[in-house]
Simulated assay, not measured.
Amino acid sequence: MLLGKIGVMDTSDEVNTQGSTVEDWTRALAQSTGSPGGGAGTGLMLAIAASLTSMVAGYTEAEDHERGELDSIRARARSLRNDALELADQDASASRAFGAAFRLEPGPEREAAISRASVDAAKASAVLGKRAMDAINDLAWLAANGNPALVADVVVAFGALRATVAGARTNVSFDLASLTSGGSTMEQIREEHPVLWAMVGDLNDAIERIDALTAEIDHHAAPTDAV
């Protein structure tokens, strides 16, 4: 999500994550349009984490009593990859609405539009963050039980997942704070949007958990650090 008083400029060449090449999508991301922006990039990082989770699960051989769990992890990861790309596009749409609100003439209508767009943007980022948090357990299982030859891929997946969680946390927090432009205080925002406010804390906790899980296997993924 590109947030701020500059808003989001219109573009006639809109791209989406599911119908664009990596080249086209990243070229669009590099433009000063804000759609796609950081929030959409957060969704793409979630898709990368899910894709790597699926790959490692596919390369992992499990005992009979673990086969069901491994198959479920791979199925969830494949589903998450698709969902994450859709969520990235939804965030891009929220970015356009946010920018349009900021381009309105100053006055009550603009303030109301910014408030609506801010809450919608925060909700979009919160969904991304929730899906990312839900994916931590599956990746943690692979960190402990996955193919040891792919431990570096697990660490990369954790990195992508961390980027997703950190991006969602920042966007939810910033979008909520944008409500102050309409005259609300931070205390009022917390009282009016308790679920979104609490999500910021949950995402902070998730970042700490990802860091701890990554640290547990980092000596296997990067053994030269110990030399």
Rank of each mutant, 00 (worst) to 15 (best):
P106K: 04
L52G: 09
L52R: 04
A121E: 00
S93T: 11
R67K: 15
L46M: 09
M45Y: 01
K130T: 14
S95G: 07
S35P: 02
L80S: 09
T53F: 02
R78A: 10
G68A: 15
F98N: 05
A75E: 11
R131K: 12
A92M: 10
N82D: 13
H65N: 14
D89H: 10
E111K: 04
R78I: 12
A49E: 07
D120T: 15
E111Q: 11
A100Q: 14
M55R: 02
A30P: 03
S95A: 14
E66M: 15
A30W: 03
Q31G: 09
I48R: 08
L104V: 00
G38A: 12
V56D: 04
F98W: 14
G107V: 01
F102Y: 15
A122E: 04
E86V: 15
L87I: 13
L46Q: 07
H65Q: 13
S125R: 03
E61S: 15
E63T: 13
S72F: 07
R78Y: 06
S32Y: 09
G41H: 05
E69G: 01
A57M: 07
R96E: 06
R74D: 05
L104F: 04
G41M: 12
L52P: 05
G38Q: 07
S35N: 09
A124E: 04
A50D: 04
G58C: 10
A40F: 00
A112G: 07
R116D: 12
L46V: 00
R103G: 04
T33F: 07
A94N: 09
A57C: 05
I48T: 06
G37R: 10
L80E: 04
S95I: 02
A121P: 02
E61D: 13
A101V: 03
P106M: 03
S95V: 07
S51W: 01
